[in-house]
Design a protein around this nucleic acid. Structure first.
Lengths: 287, 287
DNA sequence: TCGCGCCGGCGCG
DNA sequence: TCGCGCCGGCGCG
């Protein structure tokens, strides 16, 4: 018998005393309750699936409060994965024409080429988009119903202008040496697409939130592959795939995170996409 | 109590009648025997770990026979992962100086950048390297001991010249939508490094062997990220990350695979790294 | 001890 | 029905 993970979260989360609990503590508590009341054995796979979702839900319930309180015009949307939303579908059709065309050219080759990646967990957008959507009053509710959280991305799909999309966030309950690479493809494709969609009007951020060890952090320090110098060329400006990789365990740490996020975005806008890593210009590899 | 997966393979594999069995059939048989003789419950994680290794071992036992029989100067080496061999360490130190230097520059930045990926399962090399190593007589043995198979990469480490490394192979017992992206990072990094190491003397291949569905195959059709046109530029020559993605289930199919492999390599050498996808030159995206 | 890379069994739309 | 993205529990060096 399947664990109804959304229903269980909705039932158990409000009964917890959240004081001093990390997001992972919350996941553990919910898991304990579900295991205790289950009348049959639960497979590891079922728990894995549930823990991932419960972590996302515990995170976004707190992030909703935190981002409204700490920032002026940002909001966070859970993206879900109903038969693969492609992340670029959140943009207005007009602004992604150029990227769509590239995708089409590749797809219509005699031997088709696809550019695919998994969907990021969350997107940070301009709050205006949600505000202007009369169908959603999620901003007025301090703890909105799960259904609204899970379906908000449908409201913003095809609606965002490039400057209204600030960045993507990936949340990881845990890492493994093999599983951690999925994120690098996501970040590389997102930032590659943003060159076509944002037209360098502003940088797109990609952040990872979760616990990681030194080895994970080395992997997450990776350069964006398409900004790497090809053999024999000078290094010009190498960007990173992941902008920040932090372990945010609770609401207080989230408040700080959003404030920093808003500041960085303002700086980006002022500097008009000047890369912080111009230092690389001086590294001549053409020997 | 841990399943001793190497010992179990060595004990059970020779007792099987392999006629008509696919590699995955062999894995299933070994699993059945191990489960039946176990006196305690075995975790899913333990089985997962073992199935991966058994599949690799069933594959290489047959590939050893097949590649010697079907080709003249190729050989296949299992790479293992003892505290992360970096794949480029199979090359002679002198030939990877340029790449090592790039890695060092990145690592010594004030905010270090690492280029990392997981180690491919197998590498296809020139048979000469193994022949010339007096310490190994693996080529004379039709079914070499596991220990020799598992440690051969130590023999060839730091010894290969660029032209002696033909390509890497990844083997997958099964795919999942999240797990399938690891391979794309591996292929992208391997081919990026090969631009520094091989100096375009010849292309490095990257193949996937395993069962995949249409969606997996779309993902595996991905372009090499660093060969993609950046917004506003003409498309010149887009390469793929994965050269072939095939489901090889048994020895007969392997024989065909190796023959094709050898042919393609000969063609590559004759054409001196001319990309087969020059057709892209005519796609002007600069609108 | 820990980093490696392994992979199945989900709940859901 | 199937594609999605979830993640723990390994055996080994």
């Amino acid at each position: 018998m399947a664990i109804r993970k959304n229903d269980e979260f909705e039932a158990i989360y409000p009964t917890l005393n959240l004081d001093g609990l990390t997001f992972l503590d919350i996941v553990d508590r919910i898991e304990q309750v579900v295991i205790q009341k289950s009348t049959q054995a639960i497979t590891q796979g079922s728990l894995n699936n549930c823990r991932g979702t419960w972590n996302e839900l515990a995170f976004i319930m707190e992030a909703h409060r935190s981002i409204l309180q700490s920032t002026e015009n940002l909001y966070l949307v859970k993206m879900g994965s109903e038969t693969s939303i492609k992340f670029w579908e959140i943009y207005q059709k007009e602004s992604r024409q150029k990227y769509d065309l590239l995708i089409d050219i590749f797809k219509n080759k005699q031997e088709p080429i696809f550019i695919r990646c998994s969907t990021p967990d969350f997107v940070v957008i301009s709050r205006d988009i949600v505000r202007e959507s009369s169908s959603s009053n999620i901003l007025q509710n301090s703890s909105p119903p799960l259904k609204e959280i899970n379906e908000l991305y449908k409201v913003i799909k095809n609606k965002c202008l490039p400057y209204q999309v600030k960045g993507f966030i990936s949340l990881k309950t845990s890492n493994r040496p093999d599983r951690r690479y999925q994120i690098l493809v996501e970040a590389n494709v997102a930032k590659f697409a943003s060159r076509y969609i944002h037209e360098s009007a502003h940088r797109l951020r990609y952040d990872i939130i979760g616990e990681s060890n030194p080895s994970d952090r080395e992997v997450f320090s990776a350069p964006l592959i398409f900004t790497l110098p090809r053999s024999g060329n000078n290094i010009t400006s190498v960007e990173r795939a992941i902008d920040s990789e932090v372990n945010i365990k609770s609401g207080q740490e989230l408040d700080e995170y959003w404030k920093r996020y808003e500041e960085i975005i303002k700086l980006d806008r002022e500097e008009k996409a000047v890369s912080p890593e111009e230092e690389f210009v001086n590294d001549n590899l053409d020997f």
